[in-house]
Design a protein around this nucleic acid. Sequence first.
DNA 1: TTGAAAGCGTTACCAT
DNA 2: ATGGTAACGCTTTCAA
Lengths: 340, 340
Amino acid sequence: MSTPPLRRKRATVHDVAVEAGVSRGTVSRVVNGERYVSDEARVAIEAAIVKVGYVPNNAARNLVMQRTQAIGFIVHEPHSLFLEDPNIGEILLGANTALSDADYQMACLIVDSERDTDRVARYLSGGFVDGVIIVSARQNDPITRVVERLEIPAAFVGHPPDLARAPFVGIDNRGSARTITERLLGTGRTRVGMIAAALDRDSGADRLAGFTDALGSRFDPTLVERVPLYSYAAGRAGMHALLERAPDVDGIFAASDAVAAGVLDALREAGRSVPGDVGVVGFDDSAWAVRAQPALSTVHQPAEGLGRAVAESVLSQLRGEDQPVGGILLETPIVWRDSA
Amino acid sequence: MSTPPLRRKRATVHDVAVEAGVSRGTVSRVVNGERYVSDEARVAIEAAIVKVGYVPNNAARNLVMQRTQAIGFIVHEPHSLFLEDPNIGEILLGANTALSDADYQMACLIVDSERDTDRVARYLSGGFVDGVIIVSARQNDPITRVVERLEIPAAFVGHPPDLARAPFVGIDNRGSARTITERLLGTGRTRVGMIAAALDRDSGADRLAGFTDALGSRFDPTLVERVPLYSYAAGRAGMHALLERAPDVDGIFAASDAVAAGVLDALREAGRSVPGDVGVVGFDDSAWAVRAQPALSTVHQPAEGLGRAVAESVLSQLRGEDQPVGGILLETPIVWRDSA
DNA sequence: TTGAAAGCGTTACCAT
DNA sequence: ATGGTAACGCTTTCAA
């Protein structure tokens, strides 16, 4: 009559092997679903596993397999914007879903300062992750360079400006911007401007390019106001500035829904009606869009899908599969509501 | 003349030991900052570490130390609400910051379905985390029970209804609700109602209780409308229903800012002015609050601080320190804006 | 103060 | 198909 231990130690491969009367090697083969195990052994082992309540020890497995089973999710944004930008949250969620389905852990790293950059660079160099997802890389981003030098499997959301052949998933910012601008033009507006944001990022620059494309010869540079961030505040300030310069605008393409929300408020403050006096369109189809007064006509950005897709890309690289050159572009339907 | 390897293997304690002319044990002692190492040895080892570029291997360390160096962050919410509720994002951010400062990884697990519950329960039982942070636990939550049974270090955001003495950090929902309701009453309103949400959660129930406290004998049950979620849509529908039943309300305490935003729109749709016809106050001081028209008077919830604090609580348990009984309550200043 | 050696729980190789 | 054995990189006794 032995005293049962208070808290049973976790069962190991060894325990399972003893219970099933086989060797540890065979147990390992069954656990990892390899071939060359007799049905007899497999059945016995499977029974033993449930009997002793075996759960593999990740640390041990990772140690011998020389991997970490973790993927870094790097966001290069100020903390506040991380929260304000609904896309990032959704991308994170999508990536997390795909990753945890594949039994990977997501290590979320937010780069906000110089110090963060160093920390993340060290983290990456330390081999704490098997791969990395990078959201909103900037031109000449130190993180991007570390990743490149390390030759660690990586995938970007949005095309990193520096790395020509890096795997990425994104949307056709330029094409979508062009399409929605044309749509806005189609409502009969003649003085259509843009609040362009984040021009140091590919998405920002591409949206402006698409806007220019749509306008063609009608393009008037004085009708575009440049603001630094995709934010409500920037949109509001930008619209006020534009109104000052060009009181006759009758249409606005805002670089994002958050910007558009700011535009709407600025317009209201200036006594302009929407869509009566001026039509406004946004970009993202985020929570801002439905919440706005009036609800925003905008470009739908499949944020969660983007997250899932980047994750899949990294996972696929980890499996050693070839990557599609030129990245993956997801669809961006236009959703037309009341603001234009 | 030996060929240099293309990609240098990662240096190990062994390499450092050889380089410094000491044993692996001593290297380990230096790396972990233990006593009983001669200055001579320490200096030599530190030099060797930078020379060979040594970075500790976490898997190996975790294996021998029987820990994972990961903390689970469990959110029991539908995916969509995870995004809509700005608090959760901030809490997550705060927790992530504290955790990564302590060299812990955060494993974010979202429980949305029955299936997720099982998956998370397995994950926890599998010993994949050293501790766990739980956000928005419900009454009779299976996850909570797993955590309890496993006796794994845990801390809650908000007081879990079932676990009397579980460490938690939160705010005084009842007191805050009472305070802001009194403030609203102080503006001279006589028919003050509430859109109460999420009554299956402590926060929801407590906010209603605080409201009731404030009203005292003036409390009129027909003026409270119950809605399931802290969401914009629920708030809007709830307000419409309440207006139907009690067209004479002149004040509303909405259970959250998102709810309040819905209330505001419902009021506008019903042709009521705010704060003219009816004064509205919310709860959270989230992005919704400033964005609303008019800007919301509300209770400030220190979301990021909550995240940091729960993380610290788990970390402290891991260090074996005593826990303050009764949990930690953070301050919730009232911010008074234009909606009342 | 230090070194030697014994694990931690796996997987992987090599015979059989 | 299976067992034995050697890593994987680290911490932690135990002697010295």
